[in-house]
């Protein structure tokens, strides 16, 4: 009798947001599925070819959010938060979920599955979480909370840039009143939450509808909504190092090359982005190879 394959990521629900590059996305989904993770996938309704490619695979443990519940996502808009919340509700409705990881379609693991599971199963939530007031003013700081914003990429859309640069003329919002005394927090969009923390966050939202109403008018809310929300729960006392690593170039993360992998692994993060099979196939091959190798040495 053949023993069943090990499933180190059993209990993990990976929430994946994607809109293009189906070949890259499928590499991530296949790896997660093979390790026993459940994948909850949100695809932008405009990404019909990606949806078709995913539906054709019939991967075990893959839950694709129906098109009717999917959001048309604009960079920096609230739809990103809505999509993530929809995936959280879907994932937590399944039995046996112990961990939630929010990933993009361009993430790949930086560790073998068993090591990744051990690192993230310490009862902590692993995310980049900082006080917004401590950010340098040129990095938005409290401005993203004070002033309303129009979603869209500012670097390529002059009107969006003009509107956002002039939003201060309307005056700042009263943060104490708007956030009911919660402290504004920020961090990278990609996170890992222990399931009890995620459940308490959703319960908080159900009891406090003003929270979502406030963030509908915040700038780039995917980098502040979940952080401020987690900060409002006692689970903020159990924080681990961030789960995701990326290398920024201007306002966006750059595509990782093979030479970036040692630095990525040395960060200790479980996942890295941004990988692109078309632009840097060697980096993708090496990342997946290391993720398959049992007992791979971090930083090797």
């Amino acid at each position: 009798m053949v023993a069943p394959p090990p499933r180190p990521l059993a209990g993990f629900a990976c929430l994946v947001l994607a809109h293009d590059n189906p070949a890259q996305l499928l590499l991530l989904l296949r790896w997660l599925s093979a390790q026993g993770a459940a994948c909850h996938l949100h695809l932008d309704p405009r990404a019909a070819p990606v949806r078709a490619a995913v539906e054709a695979t019939a991967l075990p443990g893959l839950h694709l959010l129906p098109e009717a519940r999917s959001q048309r996502i604009e960079w920096g808009g609230y739809a990103m938060v809505s999509a993530t919340l929809a995936l959280m509700h879907q994932a937590l409705a399944q039995p046996g979920v112990t961990q939630l990881c929010l990933l993009s379609g361009t993430h790949l693991p930086l560790l073998p599955a068993a090591e990744l599971a051990a690192r993230l199963s310490d009862g902590c939530s692993h995310l980049d979480l900082r006080f917004a007031c401590m950010e340098p003013p040129e990095r938005e700081s409290l401005h993203r909370f004070w002033f309303r914003g129009v979603p869209g990429r500012q670097e390529s859309r002059p009107l969006v840039r003009w509107l956002n640069r002039n939003a201060w003329r309307l005056g700042p919002r009263d943060l104490a009143r708007g956030l009911h005394g919660l402290t504004p927090m920020v961090g990278s969009q990609w996170w890992h939450l222990a399931a009890p923390a995620a459940r308490d966050m959703l319960a908080f939202l159900a009891e406090n509808p003003w929270f979502e109403a406030f963030f509908r008018h915040a700038r780039i809310p995917d980098e502040s909504f979940f952080h401020t929300l987690l900060g409002a729960t006692p689970h903020v006392a159990r924080l681990g190092p961030p789960m995701s690593w990326q290398s920024m170039q201007g306002y966006s993360p750059r595509v990782l090359a093979a030479a970036d992998l040692p630095k990525a692994r040395a960060s200790g993060a479980a996942f890295g982005r941004k990988f692109d099979l078309a632009a840097q196939p060697e980096a993708v091959r090496l990342a997946l190879q290391a993720a398959q190798a049992e007992g791979a040495v971090i930083g090797a």
């Binding site: 006080f131 917004a132 007031c133 401590m134 340098p136 003013p137 700081s141 409290l142 943060l175 104490a176 005394g181 402290t183 504004p184 927090m185």
Partner: peptide, 11 residues
Amino acid sequence: HALWGLLEHHP
């Protein structure tokens, strides 16, 4: 202390 988090720090 209620102002904590509501005032920017700056370098």
